[in-house]
Structure formats: C-alpha cells, structure tokens
Design a binder for these strands. Structure first.
Lengths: 163, 163
DNA sequence: TATTGTTATACTCTATAACTATA
DNA sequence: TATAGTTATAGAGTATAACAATA
C-alpha cells in the first residue's frame, strides 16, 4: 500500500460509504464493539437498581459465597484490592452487605449480604437475565455453545501465563 | 435464597474454592472477562509501536479510507468527536497522518496517512494478526464462524435501536 | 517477614456542554 | 440555523506505592 499523494477528500458521504473491513477482520475489535453495544443496555438495566457492573458482580459473588474475604473477592473478580474497597464501602453504606471481623484472622473481614442485599440481588439478577435474553434469543443453540467455548478458550489463552 | 445469619467465614481457601457460577452463567460477564484478558496481551503488542487501541484503530481506518473526515471517522469508530481530536493531534505530531483542509468545505479536514503512517500500520497490523492467531489457532472453524456470527447478532441487537 | 485492608494518587477511557469558523 | 472541529471538564474504570494492623 502506497501513501496518498493528492487524492480528493471524502465528500459528504453516508457512514455506509466508509469501509472498516480491516478492523472487522480482527476478532478482538468485534469483541470490543459488541461488548460496548451490549454494555449500554446493561448499564441502563442496572441503573434501575442503582448498580453498575462492578458493584453488581460484587453483590452476586457475596451472595454466592457468604463469608468471603475481600482479597479472595478481588482475586475472583480480577480487580485490584484498593478498587474493591470503595465498591464495598458503597454497598455497606446502602446496607446491602456487612463486613464482619474474622475471629481467627483479625486482619480480614467476612463479607455477607443482608436481607436487603439478597432481595436486590434477586431482582437485579433476573433483570440482567432478561437483558441477556434480548440477544441470546437470536442465537442458535450451536452458536451459544460455540460462543461460550470460544470465550473460554480466549480467556485460557491469555490467563494461563498470567496466573 | 435466604440471608446469611451466623455462618463461618471462608477460611484461607484457594481461589478454586470460591464459586462464580452465577456470574459465569451470564454471557455478558464472560464477554467482559475474555476481552479483558485479551486486552492485556494486545496492549503489550501495540506498545512496541507506541500505540494504544484507539490510536491503532484510528490509523487503520485512515489508511483504509484516505481523505476521511474527522466526524465520519468518529462515527465509524463509535467514539465521540472531542475524544478523537486528541488522538489525531498525537498521530499528527508523530507525522503519521496529515490533516488537509477540504477546499469544498473549509470547516472539514481530510485525513491521510503519511508514508511513515503506512509503514507503521503495516507492521502494527501484522503484529496484531499474530496476537490474534494466539487464540484463533485454538478455535475450530465452526467456533470461529459461530463466534463471528454471534458477535454480529449481539451488536445488531443493541445498535439497531440506537442508530 | 508476609498478608489484609486501606489511603492516596494517577492514568486511561468515555461523555457532555459550549465555543469558533464555516456552511 | 446547522455542521466540523475544538476546548474544557467531569465521571468511571483501572493500576501502583505505601501505610497500619495483624499474622
């Protein structure tokens, strides 16, 4: 490919006249664009519960693993411990979770969801499942399985050296 | 599911003792985790060319669409015009692209890649393809096609009302 | 010494309002 | 009046260093 010399500028063209086949040829780019589009809808769903993605994931993990410690949780969610602190502060302030000292290790906190936390989890999780159905309904069973398998392989490729 | 009352804290368990099946049951979460893992590797590849994801995508689009205008480019990349300005400033400062006034519309700039820009594009694009091969090699043809098709359907689901 | 949680901080990405110059 | 590009700014998300309390 040679450099442009004195070619005319693109006129007042519609977006459809712009080609992006080189970027579309990259799976990573498609992954990002698809997730970005999905994220807009997901954030709107979560906003009804005053939640964003990380606080939602955090609540789900605490409900599923009562007594979990902060560093275990940060590990499981692949977020840095300092960033988790502010998320937990907010959830605790809303009385959705509790932080109880662990008697056998007084450095650590055992995380648990309150009744309100469990109730919010139930409602929010169901709403997210409805959001997911919006696109999963359009996929065949084979596509869902292949998507799931492919995502797992991608993660395994890049996490195996990193963990 | 009822709230925790007086359960013991999780002991010094390994990460494998923590369950995340509820989050893993959400495709959106898997999409995010897989892309995050991929991104770490991709950013490392791009750093060899002093590029990040958006500047790379920007360069690819300008090479493929010489004479493109900034607002067309922002549209195609789905990024806000103000954010594109600083990206283009940096690429222009490095003499990878040029901004030429469009004679027929003196508000607009026609974007083109310089020789150095084309050369950097060629090297960076090949490096990204090598990065992509790291995980694509592990996918079957059926998986690649299903992944591609699934991603397109996800994007279509959430962009059709938004555009 | 090492680990848990914390504070402070900084960098990136993204989004919006408001301006200028042109149309 | 509307559009192209710009400036300034603010909100999220993410990453690291360094500290106090505890192991």
């Amino acid at each position: 490919m040679k450099p442009a010399t004195a070619l005319p500028a693109q006129k007042n063209t519609r977006a459809s006249d712009i080609s992006d086949s080189q970027l579309r040829g990259l799976f990573g780019y498609n992954l990002k664009r698809s997730f970005s589009a999905l994220q807009v809808d997901l954030l709107e769903v979560l906003s009804k519960f005053d939640l964003r993605m990380v606080p939602f994931s955090t609540l789900v993990m605490i409900v599923e693993n009562p007594g979990l410690r902060q560093s275990q949780l940060a590990d499981a969610l692949a977020i840095e411990r300092p960033n988790l602190v502010v998320v937990l502060d907010a959830l605790e302030r809303r009385e959705l979770i509790t932080r109880d000292r662990v008697p056998t290790d007084r450095r650590a906190y055992a995380l648990r969801a309150t009744l309100a936390g469990h109730q919010l989890f139930e409602k929010a999780y169901r709403a997210v499942q409805t959001h997911e159905a919006r696109y999963l309904d359009r996929l065949t069973t084979a596509e869902r399985e292949a998507l799931s398998s492919a995502l797992n392989k991608i993660r395994a490729t890049f996490e195996e050296t990193g963990e």
